[in-house]
Design a protein around this nucleic acid. Structure first.
Length: 699
DNA sequence: CTGCGTGGCATTTTT
DNA sequence: TGCCACGCAG
């Protein structure tokens, strides 16, 4: 009769799928099949209850999760899935704003500032006000402003609670910051949540339209919603109250970003007639892994008891390895992975998790040495590269010349002899007349720049996006500058720009002809282009925050040391330490079959040796679950090392061409005692390698 | 105005 | 360790 199979759901899951009129709370423990429930529910609404896909709004935590959810629904009910609004809160907010910008006093070419742009603005404001950035940390202030916006605290509201000089400065900056965004016809990330709420409060008739349209609302990872997201979902669901939220308070890990896990605890108070369903059967992990997770999480005081159970067997014990230092730690992981791969495991079933992005480098180096293919999820994105940001700034400026941040980024890129003095002049004039920097240009060598942008605006009207990019690279001199530089660095940059063009091309093919506008809005929200990259047969490396919602057969958690994980900055507050513990819970519960917990006796931090005791989370795990055999592994390490190391060093010079077994051809850019830095083709980039490693040959 | 050298300082986690 | 801000010379 239909493609929706309810028989492979358990009773509770089935109940959750079938209950669709009125508020529903699904408390879904780790690995309890909540994505399956959500996707089946959506399919059921459309296929069985004949609900139009246009009337369904599904909110996920990341763009990747949205993509995956759409694919899974598509598999069940086919291509109508594309009409469902499945997105993150931020993209949904942007959609609303693109439909209503005028009612908030913006014009149609508003731009989105990323958090780097926000920081730039804050820095500039502090400078203008003559505040010492050493006392008034720009990042801290930006975060403070962001938190305010996520809690719907306006500059006016904030001003009322000022209790110190410091807060006074924050208040002053906050006012100016908001002012600056508005003048630039720009919004920041937080505005994408905040402004829709402002809109709905000012224009109830607009809100009504959205309430009428989205009759069925589903929200995933509800424990990580912040105040703005909470209010927004409440507003839109207020009429029909068909709101289904899914989450697990034990997995709340975004408190630092203003998320409030109490939103999920309070759901039944918000909706007294809500049905609440608990999914407690874990289908993912072995009993050993689940037990370990429970051992850790039960140490949190502020927590509701929960009873996750599994029918899977005991499985392997957890391996705990206390390494000598961070290199040894990574090396141990690499050796274990090698064994796993040799025994037939696929690399894509293995993940290495860590607390901070900075830890990834050492791990990468070890994996490189041992020729283990990997990919990094999240982390430093393609879009944060200088040349890409420059190009994007040009595109943004073409789209919206009032964008002063982009203006300042490119006015002298490449060098046009426009320096500080000119800019000061321009700023003064712009401030006095209340216009943008671009508009303030009147004569001088800046005039040429103005003409350039204006002519590119004309070009933009008649060519495709990819053609426009070519034009920008040519006419601004960006390309010429990089080509004349003839360094490895500049070659890599040129390749990145080419890669960027292939992204826009793919975008154009996927969506038909695409406007600059559509593209800019898309890239402003998707910062991890590697998501599209091939992940087959590669070990995944990522922070624990990034691994949320994913699962792997084999999981390595590294850096389990006091000060690293739990992170030192969290140790001052009990609630933050509890969040670290939830993070640990998330890490452990990602593993299906086998878990490795690693740490290092000593580790180089800030270029200094530091010695850290093992993480408290290790001692919280029952000893009977752990198999600790450090000695044995140290022997393994020794034997394996000889397999891959040559006896004598090869003499490398900068400029030499080399071939690597995995990365292919490359050029030597730097040489130290035992290491060479080699620039490989995209996507590999510059890698540090051991001179005497077998995988590398001089040509 | 640009380029280079020095010294101080910092790293949590991300839509 | 490596990045950024600042100061100085050309």
């Amino acid at each position: 009769m239909s493609n929706i199979d309810l028989d492979n759901l358990n009773e509770e899951q089935k109940k959750a799928v079938l209950y669709n009129e009125g508020p529903l709370l699904i408390l879904a423990g780790a690995g309890s099949g909540k994505t399956k429930v959500l996707t089946t529910k959506i399919a059921y609404l459309i296929e069985e209850l004949d609900i139009s896909p246009y009337e369904i709004l599904a909110i996920t935590f990341t763009n990747k999760a949205a993509l995956e959810m759409r694919e899974r629904v598509d598999k069940m009910i086919g291509s109508v899935a594309k009409y469902i609004q499945i997105s993150t809160f931020h993209s949904f907010g942007l959609k609303i704003l693109r439909e209503n910008y005028d009612k908030l006093g913006y014009s149609n070419n508003f731009v989105i500032m990323d958090s780097d742009d926000s920081l730039t603005i804050v820095k500039k404001i502090l400078k203008n006000l003559n505040y010492d950035p050493k006392i008034y940390n720009p990042k801290a202030i930006r975060n403070k402003i962001s938190n305010c916006k996520n809690e719907l605290i306006s500059p006016k509201d904030y001003e009322r609670y000022i209790a110190s000089d410091y807060e006074n400065v924050v208040s002053e900056v906050y006012y100016k910051y908001e002012d600056k965004l508005k003048k630039n016809n720009a919004m920041d990330f937080d505005d994408l949540l905040l402004l829709p709420i402002t809109l709905f409060r000012k224009h109830p008739e607009v809100l009504q339209r959205y309430q009428e349209r989205y009759k069925y609302i589903l929200i995933d990872e509800y424990q990580d919603t912040n105040e703005a997201q909470y209010i927004l979902s409440k507003m839109i669901s207020a009429k029909y109250k068909n709101i289904c939220v899914v989450g697990d308070a034990d997995q709340a890990i975004y408190g630092f970003r203003g998320a409030n896990y109490k939103n999920i605890l309070n759901f039944e108070k918000d909706y007294p007639n809500a049905l609440s369903i608990k999914l407690e059967q874990n289908y993912r992990s072995t009993k050993t892994i689940l037990d370990a997770a429970n051992c850790v999480i039960k140490n949190n005081e502020k927590r509701k008891e929960k009873n996750l159970w599994s029918t899977k067997g005991e499985g392997d014990k957890i391996t705990y390895y206390r390494a000598y230092d961070e290199k040894d730690e990574s090396h141990y992981a690499a050796m274990e992975i090698k064994k796993l791969l040799d025994s037939g495991k696929d690399a894509s079933d293995i993940a290495i998790l860590y607390r901070t992005n900075a830890q990834s480098r050492v791990i990468e180096e070890e994996l490189l040495k041992d020729n283990i293919p990997y990919r990094i999820v999240g982390g430093f994105s393609f879009y944060q590269r200088k040349e890409i940001k420059d190009l994007l700034a040009y595109l943004k400026l073409i789209f919206n010349p009032k964008d002063d941040v982009s203006f300042l980024r490119v006015i002298n890129t490449p060098k046009r002899g426009i320096g500080l003095r000119t800019i000061e002049h321009l700023t003064e004039k712009a401030d006095k007349e209340g216009i943008s920097l671009f508009e303030a240009i009147d004569g001088g060598k800046e005039e040429k720049f103005k003409d350039l942008i204006i002519s590119l605006q004309k070009v933009a009207e008649s060519v495709t996006l990819t053609e426009l990019i070519d034009k920008v690279l040519d006419s601004t001199g960006m390309k010429a500058e990089l080509e004349s530089e003839k360094s490895i660095e500049s070659e890599v940059r040129l390749e990145n720009l080419e890669e960027f063009k292939s992204i826009t091309k793919a975008f154009e093919e996927r969506m038909g002809l695409v406007s600059l506008e559509d593209f800019l809005y898309e890239v402003s929200l998707v910062n991890d282009k590697d998501e599209y990259k091939d992940s087959r047969h590669k070990v995944s490396l990522m922070t624990i925050h990034s691994v949320k919602g994913l699962e792997y057969d084999i999981v390595f958690v590294l850096g389990l040391e006091e000060g690293i994980f739990p992170h030192r900055n969290s140790l001052m507050s009990a609630s933050e330490t509890e969040e670290e513990r939830r993070l640990c819970y998330v890490a452990i519960t990602r593993a299906k079959e086998k878990l490795y917990l690693l740490n290092a006796r000593r580790r180089v931090l800030f270029g200094e040796d530091s010695i850290n005791p093992p993480s408290r989370f290790i001692s919280e795990i029952d000893e009977s679950l752990i198999d600790s055999n450090t000695k044995k592994t140290e022997e393994v390490k020794h034997i394996n090392k000889e397999d891959v190391i040559r006896d004598e060093d090869v003499d490398y010079k900068v400029g030499d061409y080399v071939v690597h077994e995995h990365f292919g051809a490359g050029k030597v850019v730097d040489v130290t005692n035992s290491l060479v830095s080699v620039a490989f083709k995209h996507p590999y980039g510059v890698k540090k390698l051991m001179k005497n490693h077998k995988s590398l040959t001089k040509v």
